[in-house]
Design a protein around this nucleic acid. Sequence first.
DNA 1: GGTAGGATGGGCT
DNA 2: GCCCATCCTACCC
Length: 206
Amino acid sequence: MRFGPILKRSFYERPTVEVARGLLGKLLVHGPTAGIIVETEAYLGGDDLASHSARGITDRTRVIFGEAGHAYVYLIYGMYECLNIVCEPAGKPGCVLLRALEPAAGTGIMERRRAAARKPEDLASGPGKLTLAMAITRAHNGADVTRGPLVVREPAARQEVEIQATPRIGISQCADLPLRFVIRGNRFVSGVAQGAARGSAHRLEV
DNA sequence: GGTAGGATGGGCT
DNA sequence: GCCCATCCTACCC
């Protein structure tokens, strides 16, 4: 499979919601594996109390306040890692959580990394599954995704995607804001097999 | 088809 | 000491 050019830093130096929507349909590439980004969430600065940056700069959150186009990778629930890409001009917090991919290259490698997956739709249909399938770890925290080995590229042929906005998954603060974005109808988004947003009182998406 | 419960460790109050 | 931007297995329709 052929890919288009790497996204430039200027793509990320924009409002976080624009970047979250704009990343849908792009390709996340790491070594031999690649996938089409089909689900994202925006984590804003300011009043967004669900954001890790909401309590200010700490050792963990420093990268979110830094230059756009770098990875913010953190450990969740003691076991899984989540990949974000930093947005906004340097000094202003904001990042996009990558939540699901449609596998596009290296699918056999992803299957080996994701032994529990029973079908292609399970390989990267959640933020923890995505990092496992793509072999992304906290070692990538701070990495520049405008320069390899972990990069985001344009697809080989540009195509329009229809975007659907819903509440974010698995949070309690600001749970009603429509800051999760998916490609409408895509089978590789999270929560299709198990039902959306278990564990909190989210309304289901239409 | 569906849901409940547990694993597991770093960050922050 | 408590809280997580989660996932998997077991178990129940």
